[in-house]
Design a protein around this nucleic acid. Structure first.
Length: 561
RNA sequence: UGCCCGGUCGUCUAAUGGCAGGACAGCGGGUUUUGGUCCCGUAUGUGGGGGUUCGAAUCCUCCCCGGGCAACCA
């Protein structure tokens, strides 16, 4: 607890201020929000922000949140997406009040349309979409009234009923709201509210052949559910006027729409359309490719719900456009994983090390902590022998002074084992070092070191005769530029060709295989001195495959840039 | 060039007429059997002009810059 009052002053985002005011002034006694995805794609980290805003606000104010599938366009939607969305929201750790579908309100929405028609506020227009577009005007010039604008309510009702009963083919006519063709807001120029689509709907089947548009469905659905705060992204701002118009004319619950800036993340893209292209064109291996900013991709890569939620909390909510540095996401992953990941030793780029004063057939089991951040995780035993694998990077000929690792004549500590001194190397015909020869100091045993020898560096290692071969997938950013959507030309031109690096000949300590055989569900790991890793969904005890979630901070690599 | 929205460290985000603060990134140092973690320190910001005021990031005004708006998408 802080005893400094200044530190306890909590700062609120603009939505919290609105809710505070609404509660204070008695406009509402509790709040109800909704998360309204269209089931036409997988959820991404941008949706996580929206989920966090909607569910988070409700949690904070002891309200609730509905999960509502905004399924007014059956052409692009499917149950597959419905299921993946439910799964992702649950995985992130949020619980919705009701699982709802805009399509559940189709009959009610139809009645709303009828009311508008009878009140002279909607009409059936037989114009083609080209004609409608032509009469719409432009942002700088007013539109022109449709020749069908003055049909009588009776005529309109009869035609609308025929639309519903399937007497017209797709595109034959539409229902429009009758507002103002000269409005400076293009959306108020008699917007289309119902269109004919003879398409089977994933939730309502063949019941309907006319479907409401977003504008005619969203606000009314909010009103039907008594949503107090309908929170959406900035691009819907111009829709607010229309949203309010329908609620006013239909005299229904006055839900209010508020807009915040969507999340953009550096070095990736965040639109479903672009993500779909990456999948369809084979630039990635599906929606859950670990390089994708989708929830399923992040999950497969080893990000945790806690890390993603913390990220959403840290980025805040405001109305200015933003591009969040992906390093913040990575920070949140490391922060969470550091506390929970089991430490294991895995050599990614092996170089053989021989301890010349260790008997060839002698093996000792050395204990090493599973997680120094959490002693309750205990220890495991690692076999130590005469021949070990170490990282190629951990040896250098003619090493500079700042190099704290192995070089002829220098000492290092082998983590949880002994201090060794490098005596000699073996080279191949090309002059490359293929073997490093060292002597170990018996009195430097980990935990009971009486040698007095100083070692500046500590290396991870794996016993050659006990090593388990594993496959490791290393990832880099998917794009070469900070904001691909901002660049000239096709965003796909900026894809990083080296975003995936598959290592097939890495060696792991045997405990990792034991884990795979024992644990009922995958665990998060830190491969010591390398990074955080998570078993890929294709991994089996016979063929172990790990995805790099995020690397450890590496100040040595930074120094060498 | 019509209407709407926005502009605070490199990137986000606070400060709601009263000392421009925090986080990530950066830089420097300490601890360390992970060049990790942890700890300490440090540089960097109110788009510009004018006005109101004892006092302006905050209010007014003009300008500049960025974004959105002409799907039977959401």
């Amino acid at each position: 607890m802080s005893n400094n009052p200044a530190e306890e002053k909590e700062s609120k985002n603009f939505l919290e201020e609105i809710i505070d005011k609404d509660l204070q002034e008695g406009r509402h006694t509790s709040i109800l929000t909704r998360f309204p995805p269209e089931p036409n794609g997988y959820l991404h980290i941008g949706h996580a922000k929206s989920i966090h805003v909607n569910f988070g606000l409700a949690e904070k104010y002891k309200g609730e949140t509905n999960l509502r599938f905004d399924d007014t366009n059956p052409v692009t939607e499917s149950v597959e997406y419905v299921e993946s969305i439910k799964n992702d929201v649950k995985w992130l750790g949020f619980e919705w009040k009701d699982e709802l579908y805009t399509s559940d309100y189709f009959e009610q929405l139809y009645q709303f349309a009828l009311k508008l028609i009878r009140d002279g506020l909607a009409y059936v227009d037989d114009s083609s979409s080209e004609e409608i577009a032509a009469l719409k005007g432009t942002p700088t010039s007013p539109g022109t009234n449709s020749p069908y604008r003055n049909r009588t309510p009776e005529e309109n009702e009869a035609l609308f009923n025929k639309m519903r009963s399937g007497e017209f083919p797709d595109g034959h006519c539409i229902l429009r709201a009758k507002i103002d063709m000269a409005s400076p807001n293009m959306l108020m120029r008699d917007p289309v509210i119902y269109r004919i689509k003879h398409v089977k709907h994933h939730h309502t089947g063949d019941k309907w052949c006319i479907y409401p548009t977003y504008d005619f469905a969203h606000g009314q659905s909010d009103a039907i559910e008594n949503i107090t705060h309908s929170i959406c992204t900035l691009e819907f701002m111009p829709h607010r006027e229309l949203y309010n118009w329908f609620i006013e004319k239909l005299e229904i619950f006055p839900s209010k729409q508020y807009e915040f800036a969507r999340l953009n993340l550096s070095y990736t893209v965040m639109s479903k359309r672009k993500l779909l292209q990456l999948v369809d064109d084979g630039h990635v291996n599906g929606w859950d490719d670990p390089r994708m900013p989708t929830i399923s991709g992040l999950r497969r890569r080893g990000y945790t719900p806690a890390a993603i939620r913390e990220f959403c909390k840290r980025i805040g909510v405001a109305k200015r456009e933003n591009v969040i540095d992906v390093s913040l996401l990575e920070f949140c992953a490391r922060e969470d994983l550091n506390k929970h990941a089991l430490r294991r030793m895995v050599v990614l780029n092996p170089l053989k090390l021989v301890i010349t004063n260790w008997d060839a057939d002698k093996v000792e089991l050395l204990e090493s902590e599973n997680n120094p951040e959490n002693p309750e995780d205990g220890e495991r035993k690692m076999p130590f022998g005469r021949e070990l694998w170490i990282e190629k990077d951990d040896f250098m000929e003619n090493a500079p002074k700042k190099f704290f690792r192995l070089s002829v004549g220098r000492n290092v500590r082998l983590k949880s084992a002994f201090i060794i001194t490098c005596d000699d190397v073996v080279k191949n015909e090309a002059g490359e070092v293929v073997e490093v020869h060292c002597t170990y100091h018996p009195d430097s045993r980990s935990g009971q070191d009486t040698s007095g020898i100083k070692a500046k560096g500590t290396l991870h290692w794996v016993s050659v005769s006990h090593a388990v071969p594993v496959e490791v997938h290393q990832y880099d950013r998917l794009f070469k530029v900070n904001n691909p959507a901002d660049e000239e030309g096709d965003f796909k031109d900026y894809i990083n060709p080296d975003s995936l690096h598959v290592i097939t000949n890495a060696y792991a300590e045997p405990e990792l295989k034991t884990d795979a055989e024992t644990f009922s569900s995958p665990r998060h790991y830190q491969f010591m001195r390398k990074g955080y890793y998570y078993p890929d969904q294709t991994s089996t005890p016979e063929k172990l495959v790990y995805n790099q979630t995020v690397g450890l901070r590496d100040t040595w690599a930074k120094m060498n840039k």
